[in-house]
Amino acid sequence: MVVADTERLTAKTFGVEDSHPDWCGGCGDFGILSAVKQALAKLGRPPHEVAVISGIGCSGKIPHYINAYGLHTLHGRALNVATGVKLANQDLEVLVAGGDGDGYGIGAGYFVNSGRRNVNLAYLVHNNGVYGLTKGQAAPTMRRGQKTKGMAEAAIQESVNPIGLAIASGYTFIARGYAMAQPDLVDLIVRAVQHRGTALIDILQPCPIYNDLMTIDFFRGRDIGHNRTYRLADEGFDGRVHDPSNQDEIVAKQQAAIAKSFEWGDRIPIGVLYQLDAPTYEDELAGRLPELGTSSLLDLAAPGQDISRLQDAYR
């Protein structure tokens, strides 16, 4: 194995030749994997400086297909593990991936609290509305009253609004992507990674086997004669807070993002809904111990720390 030359990074650099996805044909996960590799090439970090941390589910397998450090963790706990990885070594570029059940269901508490912390991570949620790996049960994003062909009965629980929840939790970069809109998704991932703080991209994706409602045809709008997805930027929507010290602007931008998050049906917005430059958790840590502003715990926390002063405090 050779260390990658950062001068010649391509999507292929981040591919793994002898490990092949076991996703179903037509799965949105292929689109997301492809966009991640392209984005990583654009970001210019060599593979050994990247860590991809995933949850459990079809999407959780994504680190197996990326040439980088990878941890395929537990159902709903990817953000926790990623938080530990990033705080241990801030020099790593940490991407987190998981499904909508993983992030908004079993991991909902960690989804909320990760927003509060604002660790410098990019979190990609593969949102297909169903639990694929367990054969098609409704995910927390399945709308009330909807019934896929795989569900025994229509959903009688209300769906979660991930964008609204992210706003309420303090995420500082919130976007929605679509797995099949490649150049846009690559661009969103690049921006999410470059953002300082916790970035969420809720990525809509078809599940060709279990979700016969959110199909490629649905997103293409074959029934209504136009694409359902549209770019927020094309309509002049600007989710970025330009003056982070202006509380009024922050509230206005949050309200606008939440309003947009309820758009569904014939028109589904894609793009950055909200972005705020705010101190990261790492910034706050450097406020406590300035060395953490320039070095990682990995380098600072060596065994054999001098504790004589500490012991003497108890004498």
């Binding site: 941890l71 963790t73 537990l74 593990v81 990623a82 530990g84 705080l87 241990a88 070594n89």
Partner: peptide, 11 residues
């Protein structure tokens, strides 16, 4: 799980 992540990252 945070502690496990940090351990894998070498701390």
């Amino acid at each position: 799980n945070m502690a496990v992540g940090a351990a894998h990252a070498g701390v």
